[in-house]
């Protein structure tokens, strides 16, 4: 993979220089603090509004808080990669930067993989750190939760993020317009999210991993094989197809 190390370094630099790292970290951090905060004080807010929380059975648990945070990760997974990764190939293609890069002794595999791995790392690292912040806040303010269950519930969501980044990268390679790439990937991911609620057919949507994630938190040992397989297979197919497309593309 000629040039991979240099391109990887360049992508890290770019995500830093264009503030994408901070935007992604900021979004996750926001939800990691907001979720337990709301859960902790919602009862007080309701009381201040003259509503008795016990009438609604409002007794949030640590599991409820983490489930709520994981749901926010889905929201972030649909929109954040679409709007932050949409231009990584498309913009360079339309600017002509791809042409001047690929005319050098650099492989297309290295070009695509460096982009994917940098943005994957940014999403995974910031989501994991934020999730732990959320976990420790929850344990301190709301109640105890087994850390093993928490980590296990987080893993499917991280895989979902990896899937979403790969999907956006694919559309970014297909389109020369970054808006088209971002819009299409957000649309496809939202459609897959909706499909995940449909019985039977929804089983294959990677977004069904959220149900799996919820059940882990609630103590279930069951593994949702179908969405797991779909996510992993699609992820590899998307990356391989992006590389293949770039090989055939008129740059």
């Amino acid at each position: 993979m000629q040039g991979f190390k240099i391109l990887f370094k360049k992508e890290v630099w770019e995500s830093w220089a264009t503030n994408k790292i901070f935007i992604i970290a900021g979004i996750f951090l926001f939800f990691s603090i907001l979720t337990p905060f709301i859960m902790q004080y919602m009862g007080d807010f309701l009381e201040m509004s003259g509503i008795d929380p016990s009438e609604f059975g409002w007794e949030p648990t640590a599991a409820d808080t983490i489930i709520s945070f994981l749901d926010y990760i889905i929201l972030v997974a649909i929109f954040a990669p679409a709007f932050l990764v949409m231009g990584v190939v498309a913009k360079e293609l339309s600017d002509g930067i791809t042409a001047t890069t690929l005319v050098k002794p650099v492989g297309r595999l290295a070009y695509i993989l460096s982009k994917y791995l940098v943005y994957l790392s940014v999403f995974i690292i910031t989501a994991t750190i934020s999730a732990f912040i959320c976990y420790f806040y929850t344990v301190a303010a709301i109640g105890d939760l087994d850390i093993v269950d928490f980590v296990a519930s987080l893993l499917p969501m991280l895989l979902l993020l990896a899937f979403c980044v790969a999907l956006t990268l694919l559309f970014s390679t297909i389109f020369k317009s970054q808006m088209a790439a971002g819009g299409t990937s957000a649309g496809v991911m939202f459609a897959l999210y909706i499909i995940s609620f449909i019985p039977f057919i929804g089983e294959i949507s990677p977004f069904r991993m959220s149900t799996w994630s919820h059940s882990i938190i609630q103590g279930s040992q069951e593994v949702s094989v179908l969405p797991l397989i779909t996510a992993v297979v699609c992820l590899f197919v998307f990356i391989a197809y992006s590389i293949s497309l770039l090989k055939k593309k008129e740059i």
Partner: peptide, 26 residues
């Protein structure tokens, strides 16, 4: 190769861009 409308990473200085190109050549 010099394209008709060359484009660069705007966040880099000219020197940084050239060093990157040199490193890509190994």
């Amino acid at each position: 190769y010099l394209p008709d409308v060359p484009a660069f990473h705007k966040y880099m200085t000219g020197l940084q861009y050239l060093v990157l190109c040199g490193e890509l050549f190994g």
